[in-house]
């Protein structure tokens, strides 16, 4: 059987706190490795998930306690990471200004960088707010073998 040929789904929940980011990155990293992604893509998936979770903790929970549920689905072609929270606040990604990554130092703004990177690192980012909380879906397709 070829590496990454088996389909799988994994699900786990963590407290919405920054000190669990390390564990969350390990979780999605191991899933991406199991799916057969390159080291570069594994890093990208870990970073995008970290940026997504950091945003949930900072902008959706805003210091309130809660959980982030993460589901990873590998269908043989793409990895889908679904983050679900029950936070009171939503964060409309469209309203967060996109940083100008070509701006000189004096005009560089620090905000919005996490979301910008998340979109750059993944093939698709989908945000679904609801009264029960936010759902964020990150997708990355397997790169073709060289």
């Amino acid at each position: 059987m070829s590496v990454g040929g088996d389909i799988f789904s994994l699900q786990r929940s963590w407290p919405a706190r920054f000190d669990f980011l390390d564990e969350i990155r390990t979780f999605v990293g191991q899933a991406a490795e199991r799916a057969g992604f390159s080291e570069q893509a594994v890093y990208a998936i870990q970073m995008a998930t970290d940026e997504a979770c950091s945003n949930v903790i900072e902008h959706a929970y805003r210091g309130e306690s809660g959980n982030i549920e993460i589901r990873v689905d590998w269908d043989g072609l793409q990895l889908t990471i679904t983050l679900q929270d029950t936070a009171r606040y939503s964060f409309d990604m469209k309203k967060i200004a996109q940083p100008d990554v070509n701006a000189p130092l004096s005009k560089r703004k620090a905000g919005g960088l996490g979301i910008y990177l998340m979109k750059k690192l993944m093939d698709e980012v989908q945000y679904l707010p609801s009264p029960q909380g936010n759902t964020l879906i990150l997708r990355k397709r397997k790169e073709k073998a060289v």
Binding site: E39, D100, L113, Y116
Partner: peptide, 10 residues
């Protein structure tokens, strides 16, 4: 890997 991300961020 860190350099690639720094490049993406400009």
């Amino acid at each position: 890997r860190v350099l690639e991300a720094l490049e993406l961020a400009g």
